[in-house]
Design a protein around this nucleic acid. Structure first.
Lengths: 230, 230
DNA sequence: GTACACTTGTGATATTTATTACATTGTTGA
DNA sequence: TCAACAATGTAATAAATATCACAAGTGTAC
């Protein structure tokens, strides 16, 4: 763990986006920057409340949750170290958080004042370009997942979610899910019971190993085939 | 129809985004700008091909299509006059089109050179802010629709699509669908047959009037209730 | 005008998935 | 440590949707 008060200039965790800022710009950023810790389960910000900040994840995993039209929750993604969340709130026409962010593990984040961030965008076009690039990379990730959820049947969607966790989130074949079955259901748009049943089936056909909330992907190739087939 | 060769400076159709540019910047834009017409059914650009331009729709309706992991098409949106499409390709790490664009009516569009656009972004931070705002508004529209498609059952999804056409695309209660049933299916992730059956049901319960490819929403309120319920 | 390709409508059937209802297991705080 | 509550597993059943098969309509190029 690095120094809690070292500030943006010395922050070891500078993202690509932040790298293009010079020292004086980093000072501006630091001015509007506040580091805070969250325990597992705590809400970082809530959908619909006024948004004043963009949040940079320094440590831990955070789930982003959006309420659907029928009131059901949907988990947009599990974000991790190095991600900017709430960046969608830079939309000038929108003054409230577009989704909720909740820590799924103990986490440490920096709140960056939206105003400071916007000023940097206006004065440094290269920075703005980097931010735009970042946004689209982010967007693409959401898209791929959402698209899959629309087109595929349940087995394909679950396979997709597992591969997402393994390849995009935890970067391990063996990972702790950090989500309840109900939540996993809301990530792929289905019910808790169906998740249970399918995970069991995957286990029985030796695609994965299930041990409580820890999942090991034992046959990635077949899982990917399943994901593509639907 | 306004003058084909009037150029960006005199373009009556200046979007909010473009409005923040001054005359000399508009000249730069114009330098990298090329206006072209497309007939119904023609492809404007194709997913996976190199992307050199951002496309601004001046006239007509254009469908954006993305191939899913299983090869099935998904219609992301129907875009219209005033929209920037292919703007996602500003992502620095990506050099190919993220989706295909096909005219669903005769259309007229401007190709804007990506390089010129990027230069403007770098030199005018306010412009960049506007672009970022635009992107997020766009993204939000996709999201709401995709989210709905994941969470709702078929009737809700179809209701959602019809309301989308009426309120967001054509701004009329009566509109020509401009899409085949198969395509409408691929917009809400279902089969042609299910679309037919459901539209007939909607017609029978007097939510809509069906006349070939022209749909009239006759009971918007109930349709919206259906959309929320699922 | 005619043939061909594409689109549409419709019923029967097969699959998939949700729902319901309980039993069981974990977890947390008094 | 125990009570209370949340999370989980499981089976039976109901409901939704996909798939298949075929008939019929529509537009288009020659």
């Amino acid at each position: 763990m690095d120094n809690e008060n070292s500030g943006c200039v010395n922050c070891i965790l500078k993202s690509n986006v932040i790298c293009v800022l010079n020292t004086s710009e980093l000072d501006i950023l630091e001015d509007g920057c506040l580091r805070t810790n969250f325990k597992k389960g705590e809400t970082i910000f809530k959908e619909g409340t006024p948004s004043e900040s963009i949040v940079y994840i320094r440590e831990g995993f955070v789930k982003l949750i959006k309420k659907g039209i029928s009131g059901k929750d949907f988990i947009l993604s599990i974000s991790k170290k190095g991600a900017f969340i709430g960046i969608q709130n830079l939309n000038g026409k929108r003054r409230e958080n577009y989704y909720s962010a909740v820590a799924v593990t103990d986490s440490s984040v920096c709140f960056i004042s939206k105003i400071h961030f916007e000023n940097l965008l206006k004065q440094n076009g290269t920075f703005a370009m980097e931010v735009i690039s970042y946004i689209f990379n982010d967007e693409m990730n959401y898209f791929e997942r959402l698209l899959n959820n629309v087109q595929q049947q349940l087995p394909g969607r679950l396979a997709n979610a597992l591969i997402y966790f393994s390849q995009k989130v935890y970067n391990e074949k063996k990972f702790n899910l950090n989500l309840t079955k109900t939540e996993l259901g809301s990530l792929i748009g289905t019910s808790r019971e169906s998740v249970t049943r399918l995970l069991k089936e995957f286990h029985e056909s030796e695609l994965i190993v299930l041990d409580k909330n820890v999942i090991t992907i034992s046959n990635e190739e077949r899982l990917e085939k399943l994901m593509a087939k639907g």
